[in-house]
Simulated assay, not measured.
Amino acid sequence: MKKKTKAAILASVASVLLVGFALVRKLRRRRLPRAPYVNHAVEREHYINSILHGSERHCVSQIRMKPIAFHQLCHILTEGEYIRPTIHMPVQEQVLLFLHIIGHNVRFRVIGSRFYRSTETVHRYFKVVLRGVLKLYRALIRLPSENTPPEIRDSRRFNPFLKDCVGAIDGTHVRASVPPEIQGRFRGRKDGTTQNVLAAISFDLKFTYVLAGWEGSAHDSRVLNDAFARPGGFSIPEGKYYLGDAGYGNKNGILSPYRSVRYHLKEFSDRLPENEQELFNLRHSSLRTTIERGFGVLKKRFRVLDAEPFWSFETQVKVVLACCVIHNHIMGVDPADYIMESAMNQVDSSGPHQETHSRQDSIEDSRVWNAKRDEICQAMWTDYISYRE
């Protein structure tokens, strides 16, 4: 009898508990309604279409280039089999993710939530596209033609005096994130840690050579010497030269301005050149602003270059090179967009530029190139005086 009573009691308690659990579940369902179902694939496709098939300005603001340049880039990467579509993600989405990240310096998890992708997926395809873009380096970043650039050929101020000039060369600093034990080497004249990036650029604003990865404290001339010494590195066509600042010195292939002489455009705003050296420096400065405009457009288009990086230093170096490759692609397809216009208006290279000089710069400049500079300088002045008279 007692056993039957205990069994009945246990059965009653169990039934009460079951009823209680059922009530709790019901209450929870009422208090925490399930979120409406979202078709991630449809939402993702709708967002991509809004970028690629909306207004051109919206497309440029999101992926930093017009649709025509984007589709051409995807075609090049696909045709060369540098990037392949997968069952999970087409090439267009892979490239769009990459451009969105470097254009706005967006974290992987932020992009993942916007495209309904996991952080791991975004990171994996970012690496895939980065490798693919870098394979285009030799195809898009090439030495300039040995012909006289039209910007010089069609200008009475520069032709025939600078007919052998093929571009301008300089260094720029890009934000870098490095381990604490080596941060001292990466602190240059800029605030924080940076990498010193050497670039040569033609007068149509295309990069013809880029060397990234040097620490921010390295002097420009040291980086240039390394570029010359690398196998398959920087080279200048025989008889041609680039315009450089006084920090490089006047040497073979680099034509620098006269030191201790007015140089920057702003300094000539209220007083015309008074001698041949000032005239040479003025025209040298007018042409060399090309490199400042190139850097200005590059950093304006790709915000990742002016922000604190969040990946390894090796990847940071690769990203700089990839940005230059994509810049050259855009300049070759369709450079006229609002980013270009805005950057060109903001770049002001007429102000004073702080230059540092290493011990090597104090050595006597190349006599041959000094004589060449003096010859150009005198020819300019003679023509200038006769024209004014």
Score class of each variant (00 low, 15 high):
Thr315Lys: 11
Val317Thr: 02
His357Phe: 15
Ile339Asp: 03
Glu308Val: 14
Val347Trp: 10
Ser366Pro: 10
Ile330Tyr: 03
Glu364Asp: 07
Ser350Gln: 14
Gln316Ala: 07
Met340Leu: 14
Ala371Ser: 12
Ile339Ala: 03
Phe295Pro: 06
Asp361Val: 13
His353Ser: 10
Ser366Glu: 13
Lys372Ser: 10
Asp365Arg: 15
Trp311Ile: 07
Gly294Ser: 08
Trp369Met: 12
Ser350His: 14
Glu314His: 14
Thr315Asp: 13
Lys299Ile: 04
Ala343Gln: 09
Ser342Ile: 11
Phe295Leu: 03
Leu298Pro: 10
Val317Ala: 01
Phe310Met: 11
Ser312Tyr: 05
Ala343Arg: 14
Asp337Lys: 12
Ala343Asn: 08
Gly294Gln: 07
Met340Ser: 06
Glu314Ala: 14
Glu341Asn: 13
Asp348Ala: 05
Glu341Gln: 15
Ser349Asn: 13
Met331Leu: 08
Leu321Gly: 00
Ser366Gly: 11
Ala307Met: 15
Asn370Val: 15
Val347Lys: 12
Ser350Pro: 08
Asp361His: 11
Asp337Gly: 09
Pro335Leu: 05
Asp306His: 06
Arg301Pro: 00
Asp365Val: 11
Asp348Leu: 02
Asp337Trp: 09
His327Glu: 01
Thr315Ser: 06
Val319Ile: 15
Asp361Met: 09
Val347Asn: 06
Met340Pro: 00
Ser312Leu: 09
Val347Met: 10
Gln346Leu: 04
Ala336Val: 04
Val368Tyr: 08
Leu321Thr: 05
Ser342Glu: 15
Ile330Thr: 02
Leu321Arg: 07
Val319Arg: 06
Gly351Pro: 00
Glu308His: 13
Asp334Arg: 02
Val317Gly: 01
Arg301Val: 02
Asp361Gly: 13
Asp306Ser: 15
Gln360Gly: 14
Val325Met: 03
Leu321Cys: 07
Val325Thr: 04
Ala371Leu: 07
Thr356Val: 04
Met344Arg: 14
Gly296Ile: 07
Ser312Asp: 09
Ala343Glu: 01
Cys324Phe: 01
Trp311Ala: 02
Asp365Tyr: 14
Ala322Arg: 09
Leu305Asp: 08
Thr356Arg: 01
Glu314Tyr: 08
Ser349Ile: 03
Arg373Ala: 05
Gln316Phe: 08
His329Glu: 00
Phe302Glu: 05
Leu298Lys: 13
Ser349Pro: 04
Thr356Asn: 06
Met331Ser: 10
Trp311Val: 11
Asn370Met: 15
Asp306Tyr: 04
Ala371Gly: 11
